[in-house]
Amino acid sequence: MPARPYIEYRDVHVVYSNGVKGLDGVSLQIQRGEFVFFVGETGAGKSTLLKLLSREEHHCEGEVRLDGQELSDFSEYNLHRLRRQMGVAPQDYDLLPNKTVWENVAYALRAVGRSRREVFDRVPKILLQVNVAHRADAFPSQLSGGEKQRVVIGRALINEPPLLLADEPTGNLDAAQSEEIMRLLADLNARGTTVLVASHDLPTMEKFSKRIVCLERGKIKEDLGG
């Protein structure tokens, strides 16, 4: 008998309030430690697929399970328990513009209840891990796209999550910066983190031979193993 999948989508449908179908019957299994690209044109449903896992969106039909937990069982009141099991790097960078890089990461740590001492201990390590330690005192507006993305990934790592969701992490980056970001994600994956990346950056993806799930209009068109 195969092991229970870490992530499982079973015949998932998402319909947005305006009647648009975000996902139209998606079934998919992902094992612990995998690195998966979700690819497809804009509007194919890549972000929706990730947002279901972080419960930023709801599915109206089917099942979505993470580590055996049905995600619709989480309510507003215990959602933070789910969110602490993953790191989310959203599509819009969503850094606080009036805080420095250091403060942005520290703020997230404080928000999840870490003490000031832990913050002083952990922030430098996280910044080093995503290679922006030298930009600790810069404000987001002073950063390059690649640096911003690193900070966002760093912020997603504060709970040392076993799962990382990155939505278009190379969206606005040139080829060199894109490759660096992907290498960072691949490194995290190599150390055991399951990584799901939504992207339409095929050239960069092709350099990393990973599993690629192709989406088209809310359906899975192809699922190519790495």
């Binding site: 972080s54 930023e56 507003e76 009141y77 959602l79 933070h80 328990r81 969110r83 602490r84 989310v88 959203p90 969503d94 606080l96 703020y107 997230a108 928000a111 999840v112 209840g113 912020r155 997603a156 504060i158 709970n159």
Partner: peptide, 17 residues
């Protein structure tokens, strides 16, 4: 709302927010 969104996204409880 931006701060609140970030807090929630990184796993802050509704109480903290």
């Amino acid at each position: 709302r931006k701060e609140a969104r970030i807090m929630r996204l990184v796993g802050a409880s509704l109480f903290t927010v």
